[in-house]
Each structure stands twice: as C-alpha cells, then as structure tokens.
C-alpha cells in the first residue's frame, strides 16, 4: 500500500505563520483518505504543497517514489495528480466542453503547426478527446450533458463543482485531490457526489478529500486525517477518529452542528 503518495514531515510557513507543520501522511493506492479539521487548520495549504501551487518550506512529497516536492504545478499534473479547488477555479468564459477539454491537455498532443494545418491525426485526436469528454460528463447524469455547450459561468454553483471534477477525471489521473467537493450543495446533490466518489473508488482512483460534511466523511473514507493549527492530531478509520478525545476537543466538540451535517 505504501509508496503511492508519501508526505514526510511537510512544513509550510507564510512569513513566520506555520500554516502546516511537521505533517506526515501516507496514502495507499485505491484508498479514500479524508482530511478534516477546523477552518484554518492547513488543509488547503497541504493540498497546495502537494500540487505545487505552494512550495513547501520543509519536508518532502513523494509520489510513486518520485520526489515531487518542488516541481511546478504542470509537472505534478504530468505525474498524474489532479485537483479541484476550494473556491471554484473554472475557465469562466469557456464552455463546459472546452473546460473539460483543457483537462485533457496532457492526454492530447496537438500543437501550433497541427492546429493550423489540421492533419488527419489531429482531427482524430480532437474527435476522440470530445468523445471522451462526453463519456465523462455522462457520469453526472443529466446535470452537465445538456449544458455542454454553455459557458460555465452561467451554470449553478453545484454544476460548476461538477465541471471541476469532470475536468480532473477526463485525463484519468491516478490520484485526485478534492477540495470541498460538496460545498454549496444541498443534501440531495451531496448524495450524488457521495455516489460518484464510490464509483471512482470502484474504478480504482485514489482520492484525498477535504470535506466539512461529517456524514460524507464518515461514509466514504477508508481513513481520516485530522489537522488542527497546521499539525496532524489524529489519524485512523472514521469510527476511531470520532472517538479520539483530541479530535472531539479540537473539532467535533466545539462544532456539534458539523457532526450532524
């Protein structure tokens, strides 16, 4: 199991503020690991360090045995890691189709010359990429398919979240980092994401999820990692973690409503 994603003593400070401090964490292939913790606990910072959006101050991130700690984001994407963002970052003026096609950037190869000259292989590639996008959008039932040619900025918040996930899936990455995938969704929509997460696990994806909805976390996670003030305070199966007194004090105890939903 080990050796898939290994985070070793990772630290990140912003001008003296330790956003993440001495966090070690291993994610095995095919696992669903949830990252929880109060606001400001360093969850997103950890995501940023893994995906190269932020550069870790200390420690190491290894993916498939390769040190990816200080690689630029596009190189980490090349390694097969995709992410969504806590605050939706879509290409707002592009259509759903175009957004997801950008997600397929690395699985296609056409460049300047072939873009202009349009040789047969370029057309074939473009055709295949679009077919693949439709295939991915089908996983979201009738939410995205009818809107495939609409600009994403006109979509609902929940649909925009779905497009972000679709944009990750299209390249069939091995590891996906979901940063609050159900934020802004109602219980019914959240259930749709839960089902999607199960489908992804069955399809062999490895997921690292930041989430605030505890029921979802308890439901889908193989393992839960709890961060507080940038440090890891607990780790284990969901049932075990919720019993942990440190966790209850840091997180669940003070935020009873979070435990309910």
């Amino acid at each position: 199991m080990s050796g898939f994603l290994e985070i070793e003593r990772l630290g990140k400070d912003y001008g003296g503020v330790k956003a993440v401090h001495d966090v070690s964490l291993t994610v095995g292939e095919g696992e669903i690991v949830s990252l929880i913790g109060p606001n400001g606990a360093g969850k997103t910072t950890l995501f940023n360090c893994i995906t190269g959006t932020a550069s870790a101050s200390e420690g190491q991130v290894r993916y498939l045995g390769q040190d990816i700690t200080h690689l630029p984001p596009h190189r980490i994407a090349e390694a097969g890691i995709r992410r969504t963002f806590q605050h939706i970052r879509l290409f707002r003026e592009m259509t759903v189709m175009e957004n997801v096609l950008v997600g397929a950037h690395l699985t296609t190869s056409s460049g300047i010359a072939s873009g202009i000259l349009r040789p047969a292989w370029q057309k074939k590639e473009e055709h295949a990429a679009r077919a693949r996008v439709l295939e991915v959008l089908e996983q979201f039932e009738e939410r995205l398919l009818p809107r495939v040619d609409q600009k994403v900025k006109v979509l609902s918040y929940a649909n925009q979240r779905r497009v972000e996930i679709a944009r990750c899936l299209v390249s069939t990455p091995r590891l996906i980092l979901l940063d609050e995938p159900t934020a802004g969704m109602n219980p019914h929509e959240t259930q749709g994401i839960v089902e999607l997460i199960f489908r992804l696990r069955d399809a062999g994806y490895t997921l690292l999820v930041v989430e605030h909805k505890m029921r979802l976390v308890m439901n889908v996670s193989d393992r839960v990692v709890v961060l507080d003030h940038g440090e890891k305070i607990a780790e284990g199966p969901p049932a075990e973690v919720t019993e942990n007194p440190a966790v209850i004090e840091a997180y669940l105890g003070q935020r009873e409503n979070a435990a309910i939903e």
Binding site: P73, L90, M94, V102, L106, S110, G115, R167, S171
Partner: peptide, 23 residues
C-alpha cells in the same frame, strides 16, 4: 485548437490551467 484552448485557459485562470498540466 488545443493550443488556443490552452491560451484562453491561461487568460481565464492561470493557476487552474497549470493544475491541468498547461506549461
């Protein structure tokens, strides 16, 4: 084309474009 889409993606959100593998 794929090239043009990458350009527009950079215009719209450089960070997200990079996360999708656009250099």
């Amino acid at each position: 084309s794929r090239f043009g889409r990458a350009l527009v993606a950079i215009r719209e959100d450089q960070l997200a474009a990079a996360a999708m593998g656009v250099d």
